[in-house]
Design a protein around this nucleic acid. Structure first.
Lengths: 393, 393
DNA sequence: TGCTATTAGTTCGCGCCACGAACTAAACCA
DNA sequence: TGGTTTAGTTCGTGGCGCGAACTAATAGCA
């Protein structure tokens, strides 16, 4: 139950009913395609006549296409409806400290083009590098009219000023990414934190999304990010910085963090932490990458295995906090660490079980890295504007 | 932006627009009363004609009454509309480990009758004690037709079975409170965790509610409870146990908690913790109550002051976690501790400032205990069924 | 080959509802 | 007393969902 926000509400007009039912039908087609009008009526509870009018509208607006005929044991054959996945193209940009990937996707979330570039240290330089590639992607498939650009990044964006306000792993302070990209491409740009993007990817493209009213997406990379989905909605906070559980204190009087705090979770459970555990206090001439440690561990290197185990333990410590405090249905773990899930998964699960309430029935699930959750999330960011629940009252 | 839950949605009918606008008008009257039809039209954006029809409906259903005439510098005088606060009565029950209070309230949240009884150790006995008092309250004011009973308790209620599943400070395991009360009184009963109830009280009766899209209600008593309001909505989790931040680990290898975990926040920042800090390791013959400690501290007793300071420090430690992780607009502190806020407030604020992100702009606010937030929350629990946003799509 | 049962999809009149223009009511002011 | 202004009502119009009736198409069967 929500209270109506009297500072920002939406009254119903005579067209509101249509808006609502249209969205419902569009979403039913998206998730049940191919589907007939009669089945839509059965699934939605609307009359067949109403469904007919709505689908006709969706077809003339090219959101839906009419395909082959179906088969039923008796009676007239149904005409199948499909989502027109070629209706719009969406550009996604995934910024990570070292590398940025970008892609053009259709409504399915299928990437029709993909490329990457090194992330420049200077944000102005980065934008200069990025713009020609965006313009190129935009023109690449003329049949897909580009609708917008979604951007995920390892930091937080202020919701009112749309400027980067917190990105300790990306030294761009208080920078405006949105305006220059919008000006150069002529497309609307949506910025979102990487963990939030992963959460959106799971909501809109995941297989578990229907069951998950509450979910935490946990990105484990250079740092740790958490994206919160509670009551089926992304929690961003009124300023946009909600979800920084990676910077909660987990070790009293611990190491100093770039965020200004001490003993932050991400200092003990991120990829960088594992590297530190591996190299020890003395800095070796050539520091191994996290990929190196994963490879070494899978080859049986004891020091690497121990570093990962320690990282897994601390992941469990933080996840236990999330399980106790939020009792989500799913905690989605995203990152290179999932490649060795058979090793680290049990440690995480055990640590969580020891430290959290048994009443919370949370599944901890690794994501398949090939699904590109960060990039897919940026697509979802634009997609949800057409498929999300209409705002009323 | 919310995704439409295709397992549980609501299509729009021809009456949906009216439902929505009716709720909006009702809420506008509630928060702006006395208000004229013309002003309602201006505030809502609806046409004056539409407002007239809706208000007429609300008047015939006795939700709204027409009062005196207003005054405008020029033109015809407006006819003021008021919420009919005598329309329904709501019974609230606040269960605490030692004492249970109950009250009959009108739509204003004003208590027209109030009483209390000791909480029996045995839940069956407790219900037997409670029922005659409820029946008495129900008949007390014949002009108020009783609509329902709201119950707040220091524990968690499973959302599907409606049974108590987690109440470490109230030794009632897996008990069904709802059915016997509903049978005996013939009224619908709503159960809710005390911290959640306080959050609801603030949403529906607080003065800061409009500004707070995200809020955490923190009940500090025998234990510590947190009620989460994110995106203007209570977060309960799919099972009902979301919000147990009081049982997150805050001291590594700390004291054992009744919940089965070790080092839980509530062991270090609750009233019970302060009592332990005061008495020290050796148990004194007569253990002081938390009220005693508060009194001693206000009289300048050094040991009491130090016990409260330590408690305040740990409150700050936990609140810092909430601020970093959720970045709420407001953290509402409820409990006896707020009586000495001038002493403990600064300690809490300082600890939080040292340990949390500066980007989160969270106000930490003590509540006035005379407002009875737990009890008021139970009223809100029933009230929101008539005033909450209608569910569509 | 035609008849029947069954299912898909369309047509159309009805009632609900918000809109907005026109109208009435009631006040103040010069 | 008549003009101006604001409050509130009346009524015709169009959007929309409902549901009954209708057309279309298919399989089974005699």
């Amino acid at each position: 139950m929500r209270k109506i926000d009297l500072t920002n509400f939406q009254v119903a007009t005579s067209e509101t009913a249509r808006h609502i039912n249209r969205r419902i039908v569009l979403n039913l087609i998206r998730s049940h395609q191919p589907i007939s009008r009669a089945d839509l009526a059965r699934h939605s509870g609307l009359q067949r006549s109403t469904v007919s009018v709505i689908t006709e509208q969706l077809i003339t607006e090219r959101w839906v296409t009419e395909g082959a005929n179906g088969h039923v044991p008796r009676g007239r054959r149904p005409r199948f409806l499909h989502l027109n996945k070629e209706r719009v193209g969406i550009i996604g940009v995934n910024i990570r400290p070292a590398m940025t990937t970008l892609a053009l996707a259709n409504l399915d979330g299928h990437f029709v083009a993909q490329e990457s570039l090194p992330t420049a240290k200077d944000p102005a330089q980065f934008i200069e590098d990025l713009i020609p590639r965006l313009q190129n992607l935009k023109k690449m498939r003329p049949e897909l009219t580009c609708e917008g650009i979604g951007v995920s990044l390892p930091g937080r964006v202020d919701l009112t000023s749309q400027r980067l306000v917190f990105a300790p792993n990306l030294d761009w302070q208080d920078f405006d990414l949105k305006s220059p990209l919008e000006e150069a491409t002529g497309l609307p740009v949506e910025l979102e934190n990487a963990a939030n993007a992963c959460a959106l990817a799971e909501i809109w493209f995941g297989r578990r999304s229907e069951s998950a009213q509450d979910m935490v997406a946990l990105t484990v990379a250079e740092g740790i990010g958490t994206g919160l989905v509670l009551n089926h909605q992304l929690v961003r906070g009124s300023t946009g910085v909600a979800g920084e559980f990676g910077h909660t204190t987990i070790v009293e009087n611990g190491l100093e963090c770039r965020c200004g705090n001490k003993g932050c979770w991400e200092l003990y459970a991120s990829n960088s932490a594992a590297i530190r555990y591996y190299t020890g206090s003395k800095p070796t001439p050539q520091t191994p990458s996290f990929d190196d440690i994963l490879r070494l561990a899978s080859q049986g290197d004891l020091k690497a295995v121990e570093a990962l185990n320690k990282m897994a333990h601390y992941l469990g410590v933080g996840i236990a906090m999330l399980v106790t405090g939020l009792a989500p249905d799913i905690i989605l773990v995203i990152g290179e660490i999932t490649r060795l899930w058979s090793q680290v998964g049990p440690i995480i699960t055990r640590t969580v079980a020891e430290r959290s309430l048994t009443h919370a029935n949370t599944r901890i699930v690794p994501t398949d890295p090939v699904s590109h959750p960060r990039l897919l999330g940026t697509i979802a960011l634009v997609l949800q504007q057409h498929f999300g629940a209409p705002s009323v009252a």
